[in-house]
C-alpha cells in the first residue's frame, strides 16, 4: 500500500498547489497512538500526513456536512466504495453538489483486521464516478448471507426480541455519537432537539431511549448504506447495525432498492411503484 500512499500524496499536492480544492479530506496515522483518523490537508506541506492502508475503516463522508469543513473551500475527499455510496445519498438529497467535490476513490479489498462484517458482502470494491481512482481494480464476489444476522435474530419470539432490545437500550446514555458520526444524519435540528412539542424525550430512561433509537433507525430507512459507523462508535455497545440491516433488508425485499448505488436514484419513500406495492396487511 506504500506506493498508493505516495500516489495519494502526489494527487493531493497537485490539487492543493493548483488551488483546485481548499482541503483534501483523507486518512492518516495521526497522533502518538498512530490510529488511522481523519486528516484535513489544506496546504501542499500537509499532504505528508495522508496515508492509505487496511485501517481506513472510517467513513469520511460525514465531514462533508460539517460547516467548519465546508468553509475550507472545495473539498477533495478520499473514499472507499461504501463511503462513495454515502456521497451518492448526499447528492440525491441535495446536500452537496457533485461538481463541488473532487472524489479520490480507492479500490478496496475490505478494511480492518479481521475484515469488517460489511466488507464480506460489499458490492462496490471499485468506487464508481470518481475524479481520481487509486489502486488496481478489485474483483471479489460478495459472500452469501448478507442478512444472516437479521435472520438469526428473527428466530427469537416476540418477547425475547423485546427483552433483548430492552437490555441493550437501557444502557444508552444519549451521547448521540451514532447520529454525529452518520454521514446521512445531517439535519440542522434533529427531531430530538425539537421541544414544542417534545416528540422524543431527552432523558436517558428506557422510555426515551426506545423512542430515540427506533426513530434514529427509521429515519435512515432507504438511506443507510450500512457503513456501520454508528455501531462502531457507540460507547455502550448497542448493536445499532442490526436495526439498520433489518431496514436495508426490508427495502431490498419490498422495493428492490439498495441505497447509494447512484446519485440519480430516488429514495424508496419519495417514490412508489404500482407494480410492486401491495395492500398486504392493510384492512
Amino acid at each position: 500500500m506504500q506506493d498508493l500512499t505516495q500516489l495519494l500524496r502526489e494527487t493531493a499536492e497537485d490539487l492543493l498547489k493548483r488551488k483546485a480544492v481548499g482541503v483534501v479530506i483523507g486518512y492518516g496515522h495521526t497522533g502518538s497512538r498512530g490510529d488511522m483518523t481523519a486528516v484535513f490537508a489544506r496546504t501542499p506541506q500537509q499532504v505528508s500526513q495522508l496515508a492509505l492502508d487496511g485501517e481506513c475503516y472510517r467513513n469520511l463522508a460525514v465531514y462533508l456536512n460539517k460547516p467548519e469543513v465546508r468553509k475550507l473551500g472545495r473539498c477533495a475527499i478520499v473514499v472507499k466504495g461504501c463511503d462513495r455510496r454515502a456521497i451518492n445519498v448526499l447528492i440525491r438529497e441535495n446536500q452537496i453538489a457533485r461538481e463541488d467535490l473532487h472524489i479520490i476513490g480507492i479500490t478496496c479489498e475490505g478494511v480492518g483486521d479481521p475484515k469488517m462484517q460489511k466488507c464480506r458482502f460489499c458490492t462496490v470494491h471499485n468506487p464508481p464516478d470518481c475524479d481520481t481512482v487509486l489502486g488496481d481494480p478489485v474483483d471479489i464476489e460478495p459472500e452469501e448471507g448478507e442478512f444472516a444476522a437479521v435472520e438469526a435474530f428473527e428466530t427469537k419470539d416476540i418477547d425475547a426480541r423485546w427483552n433483548f432490545w430492552k437490555e441493550k437500550l437501557k444502557d444508552c446514555i444519549r451521547c448521540y455519537a451514532c447520529r454525529q458520526v452518520c454521514p446521512l444524519c445531517y439535519c440542522k435540528q434533529c427531531v430530538v432537539e425539537k421541544n414544542i412539542p417534545q416528540w422524543v424525550e431527552t432523558s436517558s430512561h428506557l422510555r426515551g431511549n426506545v423512542m430515540w433509537n427506533v426513530m434514529r433507525a427509521f429515519h435512515l430507512t432507504g438511506r443507510c448504506i450500512g457503513c456501520g459507523e454508528c455501531e462502531r462508535v457507540c460507547p455502550v455497545g448497542i448493536p445499532l447495525g442490526l436495526l439498520n440491516q433489518k431496514l436495508i433488508q426490508q427495502v431490498k425485499d419490498k422495493f428492490e432498492f439498495t441505497s447509494g448505488m447512484s446519485a440519480d436514484e430516488k429514495g424508496p419513500f419519495s417514490t412508489f411503484d404500482l407494480g410492486l406495492d401491495t395492500d398486504d396487511g392493510i384492512l
Binding site: V150, F153, E154, I158, D159, A160, R161, W162, N163, F164, W165, K166, V210, V214, A217, F218, T221, L243, K246, L247, Q250, V251, K254, F255, P268, F269, F272, D277, D279, D280, G281, I282, L283
Partner: peptide
C-alpha cells in the same frame, strides 16, 4: 403504503406485536 408497513416490520423486529399497528382503506 410504503412507509408505514415498513415501520411495522421495524416494530416487529424490536419485539413489539405488529398487530398493535393496523392500517385500513
Amino acid at each position: 403504503r410504503r412507509k408505514l408497513p415498513t415501520f411495522r416490520s421495524l416494530l416487529e423486529f424490536m419485539g413489539i406485536d405488529p398487530r398493535r399497528f393496523q392500517m385500513s382503506w
